[in-house]
Amino acid sequence: MTALLTLDGVSRRFGGLKAVDDVSFDVNESEIVGLIGPNGSGKTTLINLITGVHPATAGHVHFDGHDITRQRPYRIARLGLARTFQIVQPFQRMTVVDKVAAGALFCGHASDVREARAIAREHLEFTGLADMAHRPAATLTLARRKRLELAKSLAMRPRLLMLDEVNAGLNPTEIEEALAIIRKIAEQGVTIIVIEHLMKVVLSISHRLVVLHHGQLIAQGTPREVVADKRVIEAYLGAKYAAGNPGVSN
Protein backbone atom coordinates (compact mmCIF):
# COMPACT_ATOMS: atom_id res chain seq x y z
CA MET A 1 0.00 0.00 0.00
CA THR A 2 1.20 3.46 -0.81
CA ALA A 3 0.58 6.56 1.24
CA LEU A 4 -1.93 8.91 -0.40
CA LEU A 5 -1.63 11.56 2.27
CA THR A 6 1.47 12.20 4.38
CA LEU A 7 1.67 14.60 7.30
CA ASP A 8 5.19 15.39 8.41
CA GLY A 9 5.63 17.35 11.64
CA VAL A 10 2.64 19.59 10.95
CA SER A 11 2.02 22.39 13.47
CA ARG A 12 -0.33 25.36 13.71
CA ARG A 13 -0.12 28.12 16.28
CA PHE A 14 -2.85 30.62 17.02
CA GLY A 15 -0.91 33.23 18.96
CA GLY A 16 0.44 31.38 22.00
CA LEU A 17 -1.84 28.39 21.52
CA LYS A 18 -0.47 25.34 19.76
CA ALA A 19 -3.70 24.04 18.22
CA VAL A 20 -1.84 21.36 16.29
CA ASP A 21 1.59 20.36 17.54
CA ASP A 22 4.08 18.37 15.45
CA VAL A 23 1.64 15.81 14.04
CA SER A 24 2.90 13.13 11.63
CA PHE A 25 0.98 10.24 10.11
CA ASP A 26 0.18 8.60 6.78
CA VAL A 27 -3.11 7.68 5.18
CA ASN A 28 -2.93 4.85 2.65
CA GLU A 29 -4.91 4.45 -0.51
CA SER A 30 -8.43 2.99 0.02
CA GLU A 31 -8.13 3.17 3.80
CA ILE A 32 -10.75 4.42 6.25
CA VAL A 33 -8.94 6.30 9.01
CA GLY A 34 -10.74 7.53 12.09
CA LEU A 35 -9.43 10.79 13.54
CA ILE A 36 -10.55 11.03 17.16
CA GLY A 37 -9.83 13.03 20.26
CA PRO A 38 -11.66 14.90 23.03
CA ASN A 39 -13.25 18.30 22.41
CA GLY A 40 -10.72 20.94 21.43
CA SER A 41 -7.99 18.44 20.65
CA GLY A 42 -7.34 20.01 17.25
CA LYS A 43 -9.18 17.65 14.90
CA THR A 44 -10.94 20.28 12.84
CA THR A 45 -7.85 22.53 12.82
CA LEU A 46 -5.87 19.62 11.42
CA ILE A 47 -8.43 19.21 8.63
CA ASN A 48 -8.21 22.95 7.95
CA LEU A 49 -4.45 22.60 7.61
CA ILE A 50 -4.76 19.73 5.16
CA THR A 51 -7.35 21.52 3.02
CA GLY A 52 -5.40 24.80 3.02
CA VAL A 53 -7.95 26.88 4.95
CA HIS A 54 -5.23 27.73 7.48
CA PRO A 55 -1.59 27.48 6.42
CA ALA A 56 0.58 25.28 8.62
CA THR A 57 3.13 27.22 10.68
CA ALA A 58 5.55 24.29 10.46
CA GLY A 59 5.82 20.89 8.79
CA HIS A 60 4.73 19.52 5.44
CA VAL A 61 1.64 17.94 3.93
CA HIS A 62 1.98 15.74 0.83
CA PHE A 63 -0.96 14.47 -1.17
CA ASP A 64 -0.47 12.01 -4.01
CA GLY A 65 3.11 13.18 -4.57
CA HIS A 66 2.30 16.92 -4.45
CA ASP A 67 3.49 19.19 -1.68
CA ILE A 68 0.22 20.91 -0.70
CA THR A 69 1.50 22.58 2.47
CA ARG A 70 0.95 26.16 1.37
CA GLN A 71 -1.31 25.63 -1.64
CA ARG A 72 -4.48 27.64 -2.09
CA PRO A 73 -7.62 25.73 -1.02
CA TYR A 74 -9.11 25.60 -4.52
CA ARG A 75 -5.96 23.98 -5.93
CA ILE A 76 -5.96 21.36 -3.19
CA ALA A 77 -9.62 20.66 -3.89
CA ARG A 78 -8.90 20.17 -7.58
CA LEU A 79 -6.23 17.59 -6.75
CA GLY A 80 -9.03 15.42 -5.36
CA LEU A 81 -9.25 16.32 -1.70
CA ALA A 82 -12.81 16.96 -0.54
CA ARG A 83 -14.30 17.64 2.88
CA THR A 84 -17.64 18.07 4.53
CA PHE A 85 -18.22 20.76 7.12
CA GLN A 86 -18.93 20.08 10.77
CA ILE A 87 -21.38 22.97 10.95
CA VAL A 88 -23.48 22.56 7.85
CA GLN A 89 -23.98 26.02 6.49
CA PRO A 90 -22.50 26.77 3.07
CA PHE A 91 -24.70 27.80 0.14
CA GLN A 92 -27.91 27.90 2.18
CA ARG A 93 -29.89 29.83 -0.40
CA MET A 94 -29.05 27.53 -3.27
CA THR A 95 -31.26 24.66 -4.29
CA VAL A 96 -30.15 21.20 -3.29
CA VAL A 97 -29.30 20.21 -6.86
CA ASP A 98 -27.28 23.38 -7.51
CA LYS A 99 -25.25 22.93 -4.38
CA VAL A 100 -24.21 19.47 -5.50
CA ALA A 101 -23.75 20.71 -9.07
CA ALA A 102 -21.26 23.29 -7.78
CA GLY A 103 -19.04 20.44 -6.61
CA ALA A 104 -19.30 18.71 -9.99
CA LEU A 105 -18.73 21.90 -11.96
CA PHE A 106 -15.58 23.15 -10.29
CA CYS A 107 -13.90 19.90 -9.31
CA GLY A 108 -15.76 17.02 -10.86
CA HIS A 109 -14.81 17.92 -14.44
CA ALA A 110 -18.31 18.72 -15.69
CA SER A 111 -17.93 20.94 -18.75
CA ASP A 112 -20.96 23.17 -18.20
CA VAL A 113 -23.77 23.91 -15.75
CA ARG A 114 -26.23 21.58 -17.49
CA GLU A 115 -23.88 18.60 -17.28
CA ALA A 116 -23.04 19.46 -13.67
CA ARG A 117 -26.75 19.34 -12.75
CA ALA A 118 -27.11 15.95 -14.45
CA ILE A 119 -24.15 14.62 -12.44
CA ALA A 120 -25.62 16.20 -9.30
CA ARG A 121 -28.89 14.28 -9.79
CA GLU A 122 -26.98 10.98 -9.83
CA HIS A 123 -25.35 11.82 -6.53
CA LEU A 124 -28.67 12.91 -5.03
CA GLU A 125 -30.07 9.56 -6.09
CA PHE A 126 -27.16 7.81 -4.38
CA THR A 127 -27.65 9.71 -1.12
CA GLY A 128 -31.45 9.41 -1.23
CA LEU A 129 -32.15 13.11 -1.75
CA ALA A 130 -33.49 12.97 -5.30
CA ASP A 131 -36.98 14.01 -4.20
CA MET A 132 -35.84 17.33 -2.80
CA ALA A 133 -33.58 18.42 -5.64
CA HIS A 134 -35.32 21.75 -6.14
CA ARG A 135 -35.78 22.76 -2.52
CA PRO A 136 -33.56 25.41 -0.96
CA ALA A 137 -30.75 23.68 0.92
CA ALA A 138 -31.68 25.52 4.12
CA THR A 139 -35.11 23.86 4.36
CA LEU A 140 -33.68 20.34 4.79
CA THR A 141 -33.52 18.55 8.13
CA LEU A 142 -30.12 18.23 9.78
CA ALA A 143 -29.73 14.59 8.76
CA ARG A 144 -30.51 15.42 5.16
CA ARG A 145 -28.24 18.45 5.13
CA LYS A 146 -25.42 16.21 6.28
CA ARG A 147 -26.19 13.82 3.46
CA LEU A 148 -26.30 16.79 1.09
CA GLU A 149 -22.77 17.70 2.21
CA LEU A 150 -21.78 14.14 1.36
CA ALA A 151 -23.40 14.34 -2.06
CA LYS A 152 -21.65 17.64 -2.76
CA SER A 153 -18.28 16.21 -1.76
CA LEU A 154 -18.85 13.11 -3.89
CA ALA A 155 -19.71 15.25 -6.90
CA MET A 156 -16.17 16.61 -6.63
CA ARG A 157 -14.92 13.08 -7.50
CA PRO A 158 -12.53 13.05 -4.55
CA ARG A 159 -9.67 10.61 -4.06
CA LEU A 160 -9.61 11.48 -0.37
CA LEU A 161 -12.77 12.44 1.47
CA MET A 162 -12.67 14.00 4.91
CA LEU A 163 -15.90 13.72 6.87
CA ASP A 164 -16.02 16.20 9.74
CA GLU A 165 -18.59 14.90 12.21
CA VAL A 166 -21.14 13.85 9.62
CA ASN A 167 -22.92 11.89 12.31
CA ALA A 168 -23.10 14.48 15.09
CA GLY A 169 -26.65 15.30 16.13
CA LEU A 170 -28.18 12.34 14.32
CA ASN A 171 -30.38 9.68 15.90
CA PRO A 172 -29.34 5.98 15.79
CA THR A 173 -31.39 5.18 12.67
CA GLU A 174 -29.98 8.16 10.82
CA ILE A 175 -26.45 7.16 11.89
CA GLU A 176 -26.97 3.66 10.47
CA GLU A 177 -28.08 5.17 7.17
CA ALA A 178 -25.10 7.52 7.09
CA LEU A 179 -22.69 4.68 7.85
CA ALA A 180 -24.18 2.60 5.05
CA ILE A 181 -23.53 5.45 2.64
CA ILE A 182 -19.95 5.92 3.89
CA ARG A 183 -19.26 2.19 3.42
CA LYS A 184 -20.63 2.36 -0.12
CA ILE A 185 -18.34 5.31 -0.87
CA ALA A 186 -15.36 3.38 0.49
CA GLU A 187 -16.24 0.43 -1.73
CA GLN A 188 -15.79 2.71 -4.73
CA GLY A 189 -12.14 3.08 -3.76
CA VAL A 190 -12.31 6.51 -2.12
CA THR A 191 -9.94 6.96 0.78
CA ILE A 192 -11.76 8.35 3.82
CA ILE A 193 -10.80 10.20 6.99
CA VAL A 194 -13.63 10.19 9.51
CA ILE A 195 -13.59 12.74 12.29
CA GLU A 196 -15.96 11.63 14.93
CA HIS A 197 -16.99 12.06 18.50
CA LEU A 198 -19.05 8.90 18.75
CA MET A 199 -16.63 6.11 19.60
CA LYS A 200 -19.04 3.39 18.57
CA VAL A 201 -19.35 4.84 15.08
CA VAL A 202 -15.67 5.30 14.55
CA LEU A 203 -14.74 1.86 15.88
CA SER A 204 -17.22 0.13 13.64
CA ILE A 205 -16.11 1.78 10.44
CA SER A 206 -12.38 2.57 10.66
CA HIS A 207 -9.50 0.37 9.61
CA ARG A 208 -7.15 2.47 11.67
CA LEU A 209 -7.42 5.22 14.29
CA VAL A 210 -5.37 8.34 14.90
CA VAL A 211 -5.84 10.00 18.30
CA LEU A 212 -5.20 13.67 19.01
CA HIS A 213 -5.02 15.26 22.44
CA HIS A 214 -4.10 18.91 23.08
CA GLY A 215 -3.02 19.12 19.46
CA GLN A 216 -0.58 16.23 19.76
CA LEU A 217 -0.78 12.79 18.24
CA ILE A 218 -0.91 10.46 21.24
CA ALA A 219 -1.70 7.13 19.60
CA GLN A 220 -2.36 5.42 16.30
CA GLY A 221 -3.14 1.87 15.29
CA THR A 222 -6.02 -0.53 14.84
CA PRO A 223 -9.19 0.29 16.79
CA ARG A 224 -8.43 -2.59 19.16
CA GLU A 225 -4.93 -1.32 19.95
CA VAL A 226 -6.03 2.27 20.35
CA VAL A 227 -8.87 1.70 22.79
CA ALA A 228 -6.49 -0.30 24.97
CA ASP A 229 -3.88 2.46 24.91
CA LYS A 230 -3.30 3.92 28.35
CA ARG A 231 -2.79 7.47 27.11
CA VAL A 232 -6.02 7.37 25.12
CA ILE A 233 -8.01 6.28 28.14
CA GLU A 234 -6.27 8.97 30.16
CA ALA A 235 -7.20 11.61 27.60
CA TYR A 236 -10.82 10.60 27.53
CA LEU A 237 -11.49 9.50 31.09
CA GLY A 238 -8.68 10.93 33.23
CA ALA A 239 -5.46 9.57 34.70
CA LYS A 240 -7.13 7.92 37.70
CA TYR A 241 -9.35 5.75 35.51
CA ALA A 242 -6.44 4.78 33.29
CA ALA A 243 -4.40 3.67 36.28
CA GLY A 244 -7.18 1.67 37.89
CA ASN A 245 -8.60 -0.07 34.83
CA PRO A 246 -5.84 -0.84 32.33
CA GLY A 247 -7.13 -1.98 28.97
CA VAL A 248 -10.74 -1.06 29.51
CA SER A 249 -12.48 0.38 26.50
CA ASN A 250 -15.73 2.28 26.26
Partner: peptide, 26 residues
Protein backbone atom coordinates in the same frame (compact mmCIF):
# COMPACT_ATOMS: atom_id res chain seq x y z
CA UNK B 1 -26.40 33.69 -15.29
CA UNK B 2 -26.08 30.26 -16.91
CA UNK B 3 -22.33 30.16 -17.22
CA UNK B 4 -19.74 28.57 -15.00
CA UNK B 5 -18.55 32.06 -14.05
CA UNK B 6 -22.02 33.15 -12.93
CA UNK B 7 -22.48 29.93 -10.97
CA UNK B 8 -19.13 30.40 -9.27
CA UNK B 9 -19.91 34.03 -8.39
CA UNK B 10 -23.16 32.94 -6.73
CA UNK B 11 -21.22 30.37 -4.68
CA UNK B 12 -18.77 33.10 -3.63
CA UNK B 13 -21.66 35.35 -2.63
CA UNK B 14 -23.04 32.70 -0.30
CA UNK B 15 -19.82 31.52 1.29
CA UNK B 16 -16.45 32.37 -0.09
CA UNK B 17 -14.44 29.95 2.05
CA UNK B 18 -16.74 27.11 1.08
CA UNK B 19 -16.39 28.17 -2.56
CA UNK B 20 -12.61 27.79 -2.26
CA UNK B 21 -13.03 24.34 -0.79
CA UNK B 22 -15.03 23.06 -3.76
CA UNK B 23 -12.33 24.20 -6.15
CA UNK B 24 -13.40 27.70 -7.17
CA UNK B 25 -10.50 30.07 -7.80
CA UNK B 26 -12.44 32.81 -6.06
Amino acid sequence: QRSKLGFGLRCIQQNESAADIIGINS
